[in-house]
């Protein structure tokens, strides 16, 4: 029983951490129509920032400032925000496919830097010994994890409420206007490029937060955690839950992470040991299939946005 509870806590922590990244992606894609295919890169930036700021000092590697957890969180968001600003400024004129290709390339580049800039990132070994904030506050792994879950729930809730409010604000309504019809929204006197950039930065800050929480919880960071498959997983979570719906984003994170961990469990217990090494491949195939089948059968996700006939469609008329 304890085993099940502790497993459930562990599961919820990770799915909520991913959920925060999905919320960030939802702000970018669901509400603004920005195609970010570099999610893993921004999660990685947040994770490494957290590791450098709060981790123990070590020889020949930059950082290890042993700063408090909260400073680490803020730092992770700030650094991923700055990175997003730089990326956004370079790519702000790009739309759709091109933005997807460019952000995908950014994530690959970030991963290369993580892998090779040993002085900053510890190279292939990564950074270890990242302190868990709950270590001194509770006794035993279960209590610590429960406490960590509380932290993640609070931060997830704050992110959720913040994005809900952002979307309902006048600024947020501009986002949808931009998504639907950039030309019309620019005629309203707003600068769509600027608002797109702001949405991109905010979304990436949520991804940075997600990465920071991830390393604090896991305790180490390595470049192999931020492969493009992470981007695909986050995207699948959004598509399954339903884009342009924050509840859908969180639901998608729970379901997809649930499928991922359960399939991992099944594979490690059912599949013969000779082909255990291929278990990861089976999980990846499953995620890919879920994404494709979902798009074919239920493109708006489990709880997607209310369907509206967009103004854009009407403007096609002669």
């Amino acid at each position: 029983m304890i085993g099940l509870v502790s497993y459930l806590v562990f599961f919820l922590i990770l799915s909520l951490i991913f959920g925060i990244a999905v919320l960030g992606l939802n702000l970018q894609w669901g509400f603004t129509g920005l195609f970010n295919a570099g999610v893993a890169g921004f999660i990685g930036i947040g994770a490494y920032t957290m590791a450098i700021l709060t981790g123990p000092s070590r020889d020949a590697v930059f950082g290890g400032f042993e700063l408090p957890f909260v400073i680490g969180l803020i730092g992770a968001m700030v650094v991923s925000g700055i990175a997003a600003l730089a990326v956004g400024i370079v790519t702000h004129k790009l739309k759709h496919e091109y933005l997807a290709v460019a952000t995908f390339g950014i994530a690959v580049t970030i991963q290369l830097v993580c892998l090779n800039w040993e002085y900053l990132t510890g190279g292939t070994l990564g950074l270890i010994g990242i302190p868990n904030p709950t270590k001194d506050l509770a006794e035993g792994p279960l209590a610590q994890n429960a406490l960590f879950l509380c932290i993640v729930i609070s931060l997830g809730l704050i992110t959720f409420i913040a994005i809900e409010n952002i979307v309902k604000s006048p600024w947020g309504r501009m986002l949808k206007a931009i998504r639907e019809d950039e030309i019309a929204s620019s005629s309203l006197g707003k600068d769509p490029a600027r608002i797109r950039l702001e949405a991109f930065v905010l979304g990436c800050m949520a991804m940075g937060l997600s990465g920071a929480l991830y390393v604090s919880f896991i305790g180490y960071v390595s470049p192999w955690d931020f492969l493009p498959i992470l981007t695909f997983q986050i995207w699948t979570m959004l598509i399954v839950g339903g884009s342009a719906n924050n509840r859908g984003a969180l639901l998608g994170a729970l379901i997809v992470w649930g499928v991922w961990t359960m399939s991992g469990y099944v594979i490690s217990n059912v599949v013969p040991s000779e082909i255990q090494a291929q278990g990861g491949a089976m999980q990846a195939i499953l995620i890919g299939l879920i994404l494709v089948v979902m798009l074919l059968l239920r493109p708006r996700g489990l709880i997607g946005e209310e369907l509206q006939v967009s103004r854009h469609a009407r403007s096609l008329n002669d």
């Binding site: 006939v309 469609a313 009407r314 096609l316 008329n317 002669d318």
Partner: peptide
């Protein structure tokens, strides 16, 4: 007829 179903021109 129209470009979009349910929105005939």
């Amino acid at each position: 007829a129209g470009y979009i179903r349910d929105l005939p021109i």
